[in-house]
Design a binder for these strands. Sequence first.
RNA 1: GUCCCCAUCGUCUAGCCUGGUCCAGGACGACGGCCUUUCACGCCGUUAACAGGGGUUCAAAUCCCCUUGGGGACGCCA
Length: 467
Amino acid sequence: MSITTRFAPSPTGYLHIGGARTALFSWLLAKNKGGHFLLRVEDTDRERSTTEATDAIIEAMAWLDLAAEGTAVFQSQRFDLYNSYIDKLLASGHAYWCGCTPDEVEAMREKARAEGKKPKYDGRCRDLGQGPGAGRVVRFKGPQDGVTAFHDMVKGPTAVQNAEMDDMILRRSDGSPTYNLAVVVDDHEMGVTHVLRGDDHVANTPRQILLYQAFGWSVPEFGHVPMILGPDKAKLSKRHGALSVMEYKNMGYLPEALVNYLARLGWSHGDQEIFSREELVQLFGTGNLGNSPSVFDIKKLEWLNAHYIKEAAPERLAALLPDFIAAAGATDGLKLDPAYLASIVPLLQPRAKTLVEMADMARLFLVDAASLAYDEKAVTDQLKPESRALLTDLLPIYEAPADYADHKALEAATQAFLDERGLKFKAVAQPLRVALTGKTASPGLFETMCVLGKAESLARIKRALAL
RNA sequence: GUCCCCAUCGUCUAGCCUGGUCCAGGACGACGGCCUUUCACGCCGUUAACAGGGGUUCAAAUCCCCUUGGGGACGCCA
């Protein structure tokens, strides 16, 4: 039997790390079973929901390659549907009209709290048999004793005393449906068989099960994933840094790195750390989900990102790079030809942890000799008279080849020159590096020369000698 | 306050269900070394945990109880 899962964010902000992980797990669960993954936008709160947020969430899911099937369901467009189901509950005696004002209900809660009890609505309108009216809401007539139990896919057997739950509101006084009602109606209508969601929804699950039972519908499987914490072990929030998935994109993380990281945060498969998308789909199961909260560790994400940067095709990275180069500064006069960028990338892949870093390192390749920035200290330390003399003598060696296609040949020629003079490689390495790159740290000398090309390399050495 | 959940290295986790193979394994980080033309990469090594206390048992990280600590939920938000 095929399964159906869904991701149901409320569009009140961007897709954050926690939501992305929930979406990923739901997507993975569906794909692992060859099932369906749907998207539902929970925008019943018209005050806080925005279309910008909806678009941003869909964009982020697309970036992570977690696209849902078909078109998204918007709860704001289904109020008639929800109301028709509320009417059914009213008709079957599972719901009733309540005229208590918010203030009155708050007073009941205060009273319960004062008595050391759980704050809840006291059910005084339950059996009044009231009809609709201004300011009235519809409440669920839940069982007042007994237990509602279910088997959580991640937490195992779970049970809640029905007395713990008060009669939740199904329909607000303005006629709009509330979360629990809408979720149950939609999950049923959409054919959702497996609900994987954040831990903060555990308390809603028994309420929703009660609704399924009142409707006479079959209850889906539920699973609650523990939350993601910040380094201080408090719920991950903005003060811990970036929360939005797209901020990670802007910080130069690759989507597969974020996906791999998120997958391993709360889920495991033995000792394996690196997972391709295919492996994730094949191996994922709720049985391997942990049941304690996990701390978000940017260092490990960085490590995974460095790994995926090393593995990525240079052309792909080269295509991504211009945006990061532009974000770092003016691009006037920079050499941004795709093929040229793709030739630089392999030198940077083992060195960059993010695309932001890569863009920064790439900069010295993008300018011409005349506008290359030379680090002052590097010049005074490395371009001393004897080094300059050496570089001057080396010039003819580098003039010789028709073009720079083979970095090994350049290296061999350099080595031969040094052997002849009885010098060590170290004698030229740093001076040459500073002459070519303006810095004391760079990719390999001869690889760099090959990427820069003969004319540019020579121009740089000459300019350095004239400094 | 009431109810619920959680608890292995600094962090992510394996092991726990089906006690012995665990003086607890892997990974990130940190530290040290090797490699080396710099910086990285890579490789090698070191560091570091069963929250505490009681049981049960020949034997407990694994089962039970209590304590402590952490988290969550209690809305005409989702």
